[in-house]
Write a protein that binds this DNA or RNA. Sequence first.
DNA 1: TCCTTATTGATACCATGTCTCAATAAGGAT
DNA 2: ATCCTTATTGAGACATGGTATCAATAAGGA
Lengths: 146, 146
Amino acid sequence: MPGKMINSEDWRAALDESGFRVTTVQETLIDIFAHSEYPLSAEQAWDAARQSRPKTGRATVYRMVEKLESLGLIRRVHGYQGCSHFVPTLPELMMLFICLDCGRADYLDSQPLDDLIQHSEDTSGHHITDSRLQLFGACADCQQNA
Amino acid sequence: MPGKMINSEDWRAALDESGFRVTTVQETLIDIFAHSEYPLSAEQAWDAARQSRPKTGRATVYRMVEKLESLGLIRRVHGYQGCSHFVPTLPELMMLFICLDCGRADYLDSQPLDDLIQHSEDTSGHHITDSRLQLFGACADCQQNA
DNA sequence: TCCTTATTGATACCATGTCTCAATAAGGAT
DNA sequence: ATCCTTATTGAGACATGGTATCAATAAGGA
């Protein structure tokens, strides 16, 4: 389960286009979130940021998390480590798998979810505008090394 | 979307069998959770409990929520109102739909989810032991009244 | 280089949830 | 019914996660 490579440049560009100044703290935080294989909480990101930039403020990190989430660049992970950890969003892939052994996140093709939603709309009569799906278990690597 | 009727007696029995004393506070809280059509937070349940039992302690409510969740009688709702609201668990039905207009919860047949999980296991090589799916949108009722 | 303004960091604050411990109440034994 | 033992309770202190405020700072255009 190798880490997906997110291009930090794309995130910079997205922030830039949204009219935000892209400062050095923001670059630091972008790198932290974009390159982590594991879901990160704001506190964890704060710790990481202070390694290279000790004066980094807590509020700044929370503000940045909010900004990245609202731009859809990171998304919240629900369950098993609380509901306040974040992973990078991969636009073309939606379903999230979290390994309960090693903690790493993997992304799965979302087509089955799209089908499920379509089917549920048809049978329930509800209009479904958003969904949240996460899968948990043992990843292929951890099963081998068990 | 009529409220599902949960039998409070079953919950009493489940607590009883697990070796807990079923006290009057617990009965109050069971009724509150079992009969609410809407996801409830611990604080909301606390407010409700104090209507009929003003001395009810906050910690007691949190303890009860934990107990009910660990027994699988209630489950956490993730998203759109935070991640700290709870709904009764319906054993035979798993997929949860939350209406973003009226806030009510509906339960959908889980077979499509079972199929999705099977398919994801086959294609990813991960062993999936648990899942979290929630659907959001406008329920059939709210669409009509719009 | 100066000026304007968004961003920052420190701190105070708030909300949510947990821990402690003396007081209470269940429920079995008598 | 009464006593005894012990789980449960309630009050409040505490911890954690997250937000609001505001003076100081730093971007970036003129």
